[in-house]
């Protein structure tokens, strides 16, 4: 079993490297390349003047495809890492910050790649992949003892509910990360004239689609959390800070969904709400550091 845990960690490390390399490719692809043309002009008095003309051009398709390949490679390695840890622990590993950050990296990568296929746009990777890399970097600096597989404390001893509740939470966060990336790119695309970015409508729609996955998922998280709280503590809502932070996030996405039906709110203002909402997601995710309460386990 020890070897399995170690192997899982090596897979995570290789996955991190793959994502880092993929992020670089996506960035190169989205930003485009600067092409400098050198022109030699003959002047009437017989000398030549050398002129340089620099232009931004779309990134090469090859770099973009390579980014996608590396991201898939990272997702597969990450899946292996989580799978091995599942084998070692005997349950889906979701009981501490290392484990759910690892799951976030996997799901954010996977969901991003699915959206990339569905919408046929790669530029979003330039925002999602750096987010994934940042999360991976965060995992690397977590204390080493969290990398061990520790037995579940009594409060968490409900592996099916833990998998559903925490797993769906991370799924929601991952889709919100994709929605966030779409909103950022939307604001870029609608403020600067960059011909090779996807159309603003597409980005707006992609953000909305991501929320249509994330919002029901977040609803399920609140419900499953309530069910679990009811089973473990006899009350389905305790006004615990982590609960209310999740409720806050859910409400902000509720505002986003309602404002989309208001004319004039689609687009710019919707995108800004998505940015705020992702702030709420980050707040909820790292909330354990700020406010103890009933969710204060998992090594934070």
């Amino acid at each position: 079993m020890d070897a399995v845990v170690r192997l899982s960690f090596y897979c995570f490390a290789a996955g991190s490297f793959a994502f880092a390399a993929s992020a670089i490719c996506y960035l190169a692809y989205a930003i485009g390349r600067i092409r400098v043309r050198r022109m030699a002009l003959a002047t009437p008095d017989g000398t030549t003047v050398v002129a340089h003309d620099a232009r931004l051009e779309p990134g090469s398709q090859g770099v973009g495809r390579f980014g996608t390949f590396l991201a898939w490679f990272g997702v597969v390695l990450q899946a292996l890492s989580i799978g091995l840890r599942t084998v070692a622990a005997g349950h889906v590993p979701l009981s501490n910050m290392y484990e759910f950050s690892s799951m976030f990296i996997f799901l954010a990568g996977l969901i991003y790649l699915l959206f990339e296929r569905w919408y046929g746009v790669r530029q979003l990777g330039a925002i999602v992949l750096p987010l994934i890399v940042a999360m991976a970097a965060y995992v690397w600096v977590l204390p080493a003892n969290l990398r061990e597989v520790n037995p579940l404390i009594p409060a968490l001893q409900n592996p099916p509910l833990m998998t559903a509740h925490v797993g769906i939470a991370i799924l929601a966060y991952a889709t919100f990360a994709v929605a966030f990336a779409a909103a950022v790119l939307y604001l870029v695309a609608s403020h600067w004239r960059v011909s090779w970015l996807p159309s603003a409508d597409l980005l707006d729609d992609l953000g909305f689609r991501a929320v249509t996955v994330g919002f029901p998922a977040m609803s399920l998280v609140l419900i499953l959390g309530s069910v679990w709280a009811y089973r473990a503590w006899g009350t389905y809502w305790q006004w615990d800070p982590k609960e209310t932070a999740a409720l806050f996030t859910w409400l902000i996405y509720g505002v986003y969904l309602h404002t989309r039906s208001l004319r004039g709110w689609r687009g710019n203002r919707s995108a800004i709400i998505l940015l705020i909402a992702f702030g709420a997601v980050i707040f909820t995710y790292f909330g354990n550091y700020v406010f103890g309460g009933l969710h204060a386990y998992g090594g934070v």
Partner: peptide, 15 residues
């Protein structure tokens, strides 16, 4: 909804 969210945020940060 925004006001409710704000109140929830105030309540959350209180903890």
């Amino acid at each position: 909804i925004a006001i409710l969210a704000l109140l929830v945020l105030i309540g959350t940060l209180r903890g």
